[in-house]
Amino acid sequence: MSAQRSFRFLWIGQTLANLGDVFYVIAIISAVYAVTGSAK
């Protein structure tokens, strides 16, 4: 496997992991807001 292909897989994996983290945080904030009515 070439270094360029490996780097591409690493980049794609990191991007997907970062997107997952963003959606996780949004879900937590949404759940807290739904329960409490406040985002503070």
Rank of each mutant, 00 (worst) to 15 (best):
Y33F: 09
I28S: 04
A3H: 12
L10R: 09
F9E: 15
T15N: 10
Q4W: 06
L19P: 00
G37K: 01
A3D: 14
A27Y: 08
L10E: 13
R5M: 03
L16P: 01
A31P: 00
A31G: 05
S6E: 13
I12T: 09
V32R: 02
V35M: 01
N18C: 11
A3C: 09
L16R: 14
S38N: 11
V22D: 05
Q4P: 01
N18V: 15
I29P: 00
V22W: 15
G20K: 02
R5V: 08
K40T: 02
T15H: 04
I26P: 02
S38D: 11
Q4T: 11
A31H: 04
L16H: 10
N18A: 15
L10C: 10
F9Q: 15
S2C: 08
A27G: 06
I12R: 07
R5Q: 12
Y33L: 14
M1A: 14
G13H: 02
A27V: 03
M1P: 10
S38F: 02
L19C: 12
D21A: 13
G37S: 01
I12D: 04
L16T: 13
F7M: 05
I26T: 07
L19Q: 02
I26K: 09
D21L: 15
Y24D: 08
I26A: 14
I29S: 09
A39P: 02
T15V: 13
Q4I: 10
L16C: 12
A31R: 02
F7C: 03
K40F: 04
D21F: 15
A34R: 07
K40Q: 10
T36W: 05
Y33E: 12
W11C: 07
V35G: 00
L16F: 14
A17E: 15
K40E: 05
S30K: 01
S2F: 05
A3Q: 11
F23L: 10
S6T: 12
Y33N: 08
F9K: 14
R5T: 09
N18G: 10
S2Y: 01
A3V: 13
N18E: 13
A34K: 06
F9P: 01
S38P: 00
R8C: 08
I28Y: 07
R8F: 10
A27D: 09
G37Q: 00
Q4M: 06
G13S: 11
L10P: 00
I28A: 06
W11N: 08
G37R: 00
S6Q: 15
L19N: 03
T15Y: 08
I12F: 11
Y24L: 10
F23W: 07
S38Q: 06
L10F: 12
A39G: 08
T36S: 10
I26S: 06
F23H: 07
L19W: 05
S6N: 09
V25K: 15
I29K: 04
T15M: 15
R5C: 02
G20H: 03
I12C: 05
R8E: 12
A34M: 05
G20N: 07
F23S: 10
F7S: 04
S30H: 01
V35A: 03
Y24P: 00
T36V: 12
V32K: 01
D21E: 13
A27H: 03
A31Y: 10
G13F: 08
G37A: 01
A39H: 03
T15P: 00
V22R: 14
L19K: 06
G13Q: 03
F9N: 14
A3M: 09
V32P: 00
N18I: 14
F7N: 04
Q14T: 15
